[in-house]
């Protein structure tokens, strides 16, 4: 009986986490269109509801009403599985993100590794979609995407090692607590920049959105998807952006901690700080999209393997050396 009750409580917590998240995803698409509009001197969505606020709901309804088309040459099971996988993987990462001291669904010892594992699984949704569609554009998009994600995961992993060395723990709550007084983006500033750029590549966002390059691949891996399949990919991509922004905030911007531990800042509760930091990164995502032209694929690979990888490897050695030399190794 107690186990069933525990299960009910967990399901309730999951709903408390997922429902605002999905709402956030919906309004992230709205924010993206509004911010892009403002940057390009346009209005963005403005006709559905006041200031176009009901636009995401109208978009969702439209996709919901469309016919689901499954290409006849496709591998049906994998074709249907792929968008579900993408969407689920974008949601399960949230289980370990701490919103405040104790405000976390699963406070596990290996939180960072869990996030790394979830983000490395994200490639399967895309590669399965590309292969199951049985279409050249989709397959090319999937190949590009998987090569890109595997490449940039390596530098992400090495950058995370820097944070782990400095914090002395794999637990996200401990990592945030150890940033009290000095957020890690100050000592690890170059890594912070590289991490954000790698995250852009990892989430297939501009300027690294080669997997869905409209000009050469139509829209890449999701060409053949319509209706809810497409909607799930779309939601998955945006949920992934929010998740990655949360990871950036937790690792480098002190998670739920206020910038200064003095009165006007400590009045604002921790979860609000975390959400503000997430919004900052999301704005940077959109800003990059509005500003930067798309990378060429060989340049993307060059950047990942020949610039980011050696630099982050060097920084790991430097961090370890400094920590040992000045006896700063966390116990």
């Amino acid at each position: 009986m107690a186990e069933i009750w525990a299960l009910v409580v967990i399901v309730f917590y999951i709903l408390v986490l997922v429902v605002p998240l999905l709402l956030g995803v919906a309004y992230l698409t709205y924010a993206e269109r509004k911010v892009l509009g403002a940057m390009q001197l346009r209005q963005g969505p403005m006709t559905v509801g006041p200031y176009g606020l009901l636009q995401p709901i109208a978009d969702g309804l439209k996709l919901f009403m469309k016919e689901t088309v499954v290409p006849s040459g496709s591998n049906k099971f994998v074709f249907v599985l792929a968008p579900m996988l993408t969407f689920i993987l974008a949601l399960i990462g949230w289980a370990v993100i701490p919103f405040g001291p104790g405000l976390v669904l699963a406070d596990i010892n290996v939180g960072v590794l869990y996030l790394l594992a979830v983000s490395s699984l994200g490639v399967y949704g895309i590669i399965m979609a590309g292969w199951a569609s049985n279409s050249r554009y989709a397959f090319l998009g999937a190949l590009r995407s998987s090569a890109q994600m595997v490449s940039y995961e390596i530098s992400i992993g090495l950058i995370i090692i820097n944070v782990l060395l400095t914090a002395g723990s794999l637990n996200l709550t401990t990592i945030v607590e150890s940033q009290r007084g000095l957020w890690y983006f100050i000592p690890h500033f170059p890594m912070f920049v590289i991490f954000f750029v790698s995250v852009l590549a990892e989430t297939n966002r501009h300027p690294f959105d080669l997997p869905e390059d409209e000009a050469t691949l139509v829209t890449g891996f999701n060409v053949e998807y319509s209706s809810m399949g497409f909607a799930l990919f779309f939601l998955g991509e945006y949920a992934n952006m929010i998740l990655m922004s949360a990871i950036c905030s937790v690792l480098f911007l002190g998670g739920w901690l206020p910038p200064f531990g003095i009165v006007p800042f400590t009045w604002i509760p921790g979860p609000i700080w975390l959400i503000l930091k997430i919004c900052f990164f999301l704005f940077a995502f959109i800003w990059a999209r509005a500003t930067l032209p798309r990378y060429r694929y060989d340049q993307l690979m060059r950047l990942g393997w020949k610039v980011f990888l050696p630099l982050s490897l060097f920084w790991v050695v430097l961090t370890a050396g400094v920590l040992v030399a000045f006896d700063l190794v966390p116990r």
Partner: peptide
């Protein structure tokens, strides 16, 4: 986690 990151992820 290492099994998932290394074998499944790469």
């Amino acid at each position: 986690m290492v099994l998932v990151v290394v074998y499944v992820g790469a």
